[in-house]
Design a protein around this nucleic acid. Sequence first.
DNA 1: AGTGATAAGTAGGCTGTCTACTCATAGGTT
DNA 2: AACCTATGAGTAGACAGCCTACTTATCACT
Lengths: 107, 107
Amino acid sequence: MNADAIRGHLDGMLLAVLEEGPLHGYGIIEALHRRSGGTLDLPTGTVYPALRRLERAGWIDGSWSTVGGRKRRTYTLSRSGRGELARRRSEWIRFSGVVGSVLGGAT
Amino acid sequence: MNADAIRGHLDGMLLAVLEEGPLHGYGIIEALHRRSGGTLDLPTGTVYPALRRLERAGWIDGSWSTVGGRKRRTYTLSRSGRGELARRRSEWIRFSGVVGSVLGGAT
DNA sequence: AGTGATAAGTAGGCTGTCTACTCATAGGTT
DNA sequence: AACCTATGAGTAGACAGCCTACTTATCACT
């Protein structure tokens, strides 16, 4: 999975994972790995800054906690985050339709 | 259509357009516009450097000609370009499947 | 002379993802 | 005791593709 390909599509995926419930960064990386059938194995250097970006945008809320002696930052999808997720989903439909039709063969 | 979303997926679309036959840069931009139902309206500053990149990679061959007093650079899909296009197509299937399944709801 | 379409290109900026690293705790092995 | 792995979060800097804004050129039409 190429880095350029993912670009611009990660945010939506992060929001989608958080739609199922609050989760911390490390858990989100694992969830992405699981949900993608093992294809997505994103480095922390990609995901953590992305989560901070989403937080700054107000789409997710983060809070610190300590579990098993380790500090976690758990993120929750905000109301505006839900709106953003819906927007990203419709954008994806549009985008994938366009690329599919131009590329041919694929959906 | 966001710039980040397109990133990494343009090359494949360019190769796909050239699969139908040789075409010059300006014509390729129009073909993309037409094939995408008017959605893709890529600036020359994006497409021309991309075509040069594909040419350097050996996936397309370019040659100058003059039509109606105007100079054109017409590109042809090379043999290795066909292979690359096939690779891009299967990558797209994979990628869109992963994003779709993570994003949920879509495709 | 001016405008718009056709045709190609370059320079520089922006930004998201990546690599490579630091810091920290817990548990298990040697 | 020393080491390794997993868990957990983060930063700095590099890379690269797409963008905006610009230049150059020809032709047709007003």
